[in-house]
Amino acid sequence: KELVLVLYDYQEKSPREVTVKKGDILTLLNSTNKDWWKVEVDDSQGFIPAAYLKKL
């Protein structure tokens, strides 16, 4: 599985998104959309702007 590093805090703005903190390491589930990547946070899944993430 691929991991990503969160570069900036992000507060979810819709139920399909997730809240993350700078420095979090998350599992990347889908990066086919260049603007929004799907990640797994704890036991939930959701989208975060790709610009907030860096592949490890």
Rank of each mutant, 00 (worst) to 15 (best):
K1L: 12
K1Y: 12
K1E: 08
K1R: 14
K1S: 09
K1I: 11
K1P: 12
K1V: 12
K1H: 12
E2I: 13
E2Q: 14
E2P: 10
E2L: 11
E2H: 11
E2C: 15
E2M: 12
E2N: 11
E2F: 10
E2T: 13
L3V: 07
L3W: 12
L3K: 12
L3H: 08
L3S: 07
L3E: 06
L3M: 12
L3D: 02
V4L: 03
V4W: 05
V4Q: 00
V4Y: 05
V4G: 03
V4P: 00
V4T: 02
L5C: 09
L5R: 06
L5Q: 08
L5P: 00
L5G: 01
L5N: 01
L5E: 10
V6D: 00
V6T: 02
L7D: 00
L7E: 02
L7Y: 02
L7W: 03
Y8R: 14
Y8P: 00
Y8M: 13
Y8N: 10
Y8L: 09
D9H: 05
D9M: 03
D9A: 05
D9E: 04
D9P: 05
D9I: 03
D9Y: 03
Y10K: 01
Y10V: 01
Y10M: 01
Y10C: 03
Y10T: 02
Y10I: 02
Q11A: 13
Q11M: 12
Q11E: 13
Q11W: 14
Q11I: 14
E12M: 15
E12I: 15
E12R: 15
E12A: 15
K13N: 10
K13E: 07
K13M: 11
K13D: 07
K13L: 10
K13F: 10
K13T: 12
K13I: 08
K13G: 08
K13P: 05
K13Q: 13
S14W: 10
S14P: 06
S14G: 13
S14R: 09
S14M: 07
S14E: 08
S14Y: 09
S14Q: 08
P15D: 12
P15C: 11
P15M: 08
P15Q: 10
P15F: 07
P15V: 08
R16K: 11
R16Y: 12
R16G: 15
R16S: 13
R16N: 14
R16L: 13
E17A: 09
E17M: 08
E17Y: 07
E17V: 07
V18A: 06
V18I: 14
V18E: 01
V18L: 15
V18D: 01
V18G: 03
V18N: 03
V18P: 02
V18R: 06
V18Y: 06
T19D: 05
T19N: 08
T19G: 05
T19C: 07
T19V: 06
V20N: 00
V20I: 05
V20Q: 02
V20K: 01
V20E: 00
V20D: 00
K21Y: 09
K21M: 07
K21P: 01
K21Q: 08
K21W: 07
K21G: 04
K22Y: 04
K22C: 07
K22E: 07
K22N: 04
K22H: 06
G23N: 05
G23S: 03
G23T: 02
G23I: 01
G23M: 03
G23Q: 02
G23C: 07
G23D: 05
D24F: 07
D24H: 06
D24A: 12
D24T: 10
D24S: 09
D24E: 10
D24R: 10
D24W: 15
I25D: 00
I25C: 05
I25E: 01
I25M: 05
I25T: 05
I25Q: 03
I25F: 04
I25S: 01
L26M: 04
L26R: 02
L26F: 03
L26N: 00
L26H: 06
L26A: 07
L26I: 12
T27N: 09
T27C: 10
T27V: 15
T27S: 08
T27E: 07
T27Q: 09
L28K: 01
L28V: 06
L28C: 07
L28T: 01
L28Y: 01
L29P: 00
L29C: 06
L29S: 03
L29V: 11
L29R: 03
L29T: 04
L29F: 03
L29M: 06
N30F: 06
N30H: 06
N30Y: 05
N30T: 07
N30W: 06
N30G: 06
N30R: 06
S31Y: 06
S31V: 06
S31M: 07
S31N: 07
S31F: 06
S31D: 14
T32H: 10
T32Q: 11
T32K: 10
T32S: 14
T32V: 09
T32I: 09
N33A: 07
N33V: 05
N33L: 08
N33H: 11
N33P: 04
N33R: 08
K34M: 09
K34V: 09
K34Y: 07
D35G: 08
D35C: 14
D35T: 13
D35V: 13
D35M: 13
D35E: 11
D35F: 15
D35I: 14
D35K: 13
W36G: 02
W36K: 03
W36C: 09
W36P: 00
W36V: 04
W36S: 03
W36D: 01
W36I: 05
W37P: 00
W37D: 00
W37C: 03
W37V: 02
W37F: 04
W37K: 00
K38G: 05
K38L: 15
K38T: 09
K38H: 10
K38I: 14
V39A: 01
V39K: 00
V39Y: 01
V39Q: 00
V39I: 07
E40G: 08
E40M: 12
E40W: 08
E40Q: 14
E40V: 10
V41H: 09
V41L: 13
V41D: 05
V41S: 12
V41E: 02
V41M: 10
D42S: 12
D42G: 15
D42N: 14
D42H: 13
D43F: 09
D43L: 09
D43Q: 13
D43V: 07
D43I: 07
S44A: 14
S44T: 14
S44P: 01
S44R: 15
S44N: 14
S44V: 15
S44Q: 15
Q45F: 13
Q45N: 09
Q45E: 14
Q45W: 15
Q45P: 09
Q45S: 13
G46M: 15
G46Q: 10
G46F: 15
G46E: 10
G46T: 12
G46N: 05
F47K: 03
F47I: 06
F47A: 03
F47S: 04
F47R: 03
F47Q: 04
F47M: 08
I48M: 13
I48S: 02
I48P: 02
I48G: 01
I48Q: 00
I48V: 15
I48D: 03
I48C: 14
I48W: 02
I48K: 01
P49H: 04
P49L: 06
P49Q: 03
P49N: 04
P49C: 07
P49S: 03
A50W: 02
A50I: 05
A50T: 05
A50L: 03
A50H: 04
A50R: 10
A50Q: 05
A51T: 11
A51M: 13
A51F: 11
A51C: 15
Y52F: 12
Y52S: 08
Y52I: 15
L53E: 02
L53M: 04
L53T: 04
L53D: 02
L53I: 05
L53S: 02
L53V: 12
K54H: 10
K54C: 15
K54W: 08
K54T: 11
K54Q: 14
K55E: 06
K55Y: 09
K55N: 07
K55M: 10
K55W: 07
K55D: 04
K55L: 13
K55T: 07
L56P: 00
L56A: 03
L56F: 08
L56G: 02
L56Q: 04
